[in-house]
Amino acid sequence: MKDIRKKLGIALVVTMTTVTFATAYGAATAPVRAAAVENIHVNPIRNDEPTYQRINQYKELAMYYYWHGGDIQQSEKDIFKGITLKGKYDVVENAFKEATLLDPLDLNLKFSLASTQIIQKKVPEALQTYKQILNLDPNNFNANLLYGVYSKASGDDAAYKASVAKLKQIDVQKTNMYLQKLEQTEKIFNEKLITTAPANVQSKNHAIVILGYALADDGTMKEPLIERLKTGLAVANKYPNSKIIVTGGVPKQGITEADAMSKWLISQGINKDRIILENKSTDTVENGLFSTAILEKEGLKDVTVVTSASHIRRALAVFKEADHFYSKMNGKAGKRNFTNAVYLDYKSLEEAQQVSKDEKLVIYRDLLRTSGIWQYPELQR
């Protein structure tokens, strides 16, 4: 056991003998993320420290809770006195609220606050935060775009149209590009979900991409991941010449999702030479971006995305946007063909085909993240 105390005010007790890291969030090395955090000590933020240091403390706290969670009651007692916290994202939200009070001119802090409100589906609060940004910077493209898209997701078409009109005044070419992205994504809402191996897939240059799911603390796979693998196995057996990409990089007990998935497929008779591990991604957006880099490298043109029915539309939106980016970056006109195969985590296929307002919200959110608009500017994609 080693007590690791952060100079900026966050102290962590983890079950490790050696740890190296730059910060408590994104720059942390894999061992820190993989560590079993037993306790989190949050030192009160003092008013006799420089402003930048107090802001950094709140940012550190926010990003740590975003990744790991922690002792909510302790945060109430030591940091957010008089505020009742209901979960880890309450800590993240209130940390950014406090940071924005310390520097109300920093728009990135407001973007981060709005993103946390979106994660919690507090759309009216997020829209109000974006409105504050727009009051300060009316021509901010990202703020106008986010305000418009989330207004659209909540059913406010008038606000969406007004945002589009403003965006076209700012940058008509960029606006039209995003309108095309939204149009393509909205077609995915009507995507027919396939619960078996898809038919008529080109067997040459075809890839099966199986998306990961968080492992249990002991490194074992949970039911949704096993069911995704079973679906992927059926596709792999139907198309024996296709490569298989397993994507997921968050480690538990030193095992990534991709590691566990690969071992399971091999145990079911899949030749290990067919399997490509993508073991760096931490969420759906990174699943798409990092797997697409592999598709490019391997020259794989057709893709069957395998995941849960509740996740497939978001995954397809991300993969198609990632494909668009790589095609543009590499100066190629052609786009990949995407099919799907899903583990049905609904009572019926008819229910699975319905797209809720909440699902649209997260689909739009991850589309925008994949396009390059970070949730937490300079901190977390």
Rank of each mutant, 00 (worst) to 15 (best):
K2V: 07
H311G: 09
T292L: 11
L277K: 14
E296W: 05
A165L: 14
F80D: 03
P377I: 11
P104L: 12
L265N: 03
K272T: 10
I40H: 00
V91W: 00
K110T: 07
N135W: 01
K347C: 08
Q180F: 05
L109R: 01
Y52D: 15
S262Y: 02
A199E: 15
S203P: 06
H41L: 14
I79M: 02
I119M: 10
I245Y: 04
V123H: 01
I119D: 06
V209I: 13
Q73S: 14
T18F: 01
L277S: 10
T284C: 11
A214F: 06
D323A: 15
K192T: 15
T100S: 14
G82F: 06
V37R: 02
V37Q: 02
Q132E: 14
N340V: 12
G9R: 00
L109K: 01
G299D: 15
W264D: 07
K122G: 01
A234P: 04
E257T: 00
Y66T: 01
G248T: 04
D283S: 09
F338C: 13
K2Q: 07
T292C: 14
L193Q: 15
Q73E: 13
D48M: 07
T307H: 09
V172Y: 04
L61R: 06
T129K: 03
L229I: 13
E359G: 06
F80N: 03
S151P: 08
E278P: 04
L61W: 08
V285L: 05
A158D: 13
R336D: 14
N144Q: 13
I276T: 05
A126Q: 10
S371I: 02
N237S: 12
T15L: 06
I294F: 08
I40L: 11
R228C: 06
G248I: 03
L109N: 01
T29R: 14
Y160E: 04
A322H: 05
N94P: 04
Y64Q: 02
K131P: 04
